[in-house]
Structure formats: C-alpha cells, structure tokens
C-alpha cells in the first residue's frame, strides 16, 4: 500500500520584510498560518507549488511542508514550523510580537 500523503502547506519568506508567509487557497500570501491552504492531495500539492513559484520575484525560498488540520486552520507538524509561525524563544519578537500587539489593541 502506498504511504498515505501527509497534508501540506506552502510557505516562504517575504522578499522585502524577510518574514514568514503562507500560500492561501485564493493564491495570495498571508502572514498567518491559519489562513494557509491545507493541501491534502499529492498531485495537487505539486501543482499548487508551481503556481506559488510564479511569485518567485517577490517571495523567497518557497517550499512545501507538512501540516495538519486544527480547529482554526492548519497547524505545524514539525517544531521548526512552530518556531517560524511564532518567533524566537528568547525574545517576544517575530510573529508573536505582532500577535501581542493585536491582543493589546483589542
């Protein structure tokens, strides 16, 4: 039996800001993992990657990575992606900083 396909998301870094971004179902890029498209089919994943790569002039280092469905959209499988969607653990910088600001403004 072929190994079951692990669902994927497409991610990269923004050319100007350098921060982490995710490819959405509508073909745009979001800074929020929850808005990423969770791709459950292997052939589809390759196709979507090709589509994402059309943005290679404004987006850097595009790749597919494992993810799983969560209550609020895709969630990381590997801890590396967990850090990418959060920020470093020694300072509240990176995405967690933006999140903190967002909660502070509520």
């Amino acid at each position: 039996m072929p190994r079951p396909f692990t669902p994927k998301i497409i991610t990269a870094n923004d050319l100007l800001e350098g921060d982490v971004i995710y490819f959405t179902a509508t073909g745009s890029w979001s800074r929020d993992l929850a808005e990423a498209e969770l791709i459950t089919d292997e052939a589809e994943a390759q196709l979507r990657l090709l589509e994402a790569e059309r943005d290679a002039l404004s987006v850097v280092g595009i790749y597919l990575t494992d993810a799983k469905a969560g209550p609020n959209g895709p969630e990381p499988v590997h801890f590396r992606e967990d850090f990418r969607r959060t920020g470093p653990s020694n300072y509240a910088h990176g995405k967690q900083e933006a999140n903190l600001e967002a909660t502070a403004n509520v």
Binding site: N13, E17, G18, D19, V20, V60, G61, R80, F83, R84, G87, P88, H93, G94, K95
Partner: peptide, 15 residues
C-alpha cells in the same frame, strides 16, 4: 550570491 558576498543572509524569521 550577491547578498551573501555582502553579509546578508535570510534566516527563519527575517534577514
């Protein structure tokens, strides 16, 4: 290669 020659990397969260 041009940016690397000038010390500019891209890391996990930023340049």
């Amino acid at each position: 290669p041009l940016r690397l020659m000038n010390g500019l990397y891209l890391q996990l969260h930023a340049y």
